[in-house]
């Protein structure tokens, strides 16, 4: 983990607030094990597309569609780990 990791985690939280329309309070309670895709009904296919695009815009990263599957967005922890890895290039 680099010193950027907590910041990236917060940015991922902020994107989830915008994409899912959940409250900041609820998002701040997300832990590594919190289920996303398959657990949150708000997160449908179109929302996944929005989530990826918004992450790219905010983190200044590029996500290849080949990298995306259900597992990547299964939990908050996996998504943050992916975002941190992408941000490190």
């Amino acid at each position: 983990m680099t010193s950027d990791a907590p910041t990236i985690e917060n940015q991922v939280r902020a994107v989830l607030v915008d994409v899912l329309g959940v409250s900041r309070e609820r998002a701040s309670g997300f832990s590594a094990d919190t289920g996303l895709f398959g657990s949150l009904p708000e997160l449908d296919s179109m929302a996944v597309a929005s989530l990826l695009t918004e992450l790219e815009d905010r983190l200044g990263i590029t996500i290849d569609d080949d990298e995306v599957d259900g597992e990547l967005i299964e939990t908050f922890g996996r998504l943050v780990a992916f975002a941190v890895r992408k941000s490190q290039g």
Binding site: S45, A49, S50, T53, D65, V68, D69
Partner: peptide, 22 residues
């Protein structure tokens, strides 16, 4: 290009890949 990318991305986790966000 960004609108089309969003539409195509919606097919990645969709049951019906023939539809772009429905």
């Amino acid at each position: 290009i960004r609108i089309v990318r969003d539409l195509k991305r919606a097919t990645l986790t969709s049951a019906d890949a023939a539809l772009y966000a429905g």
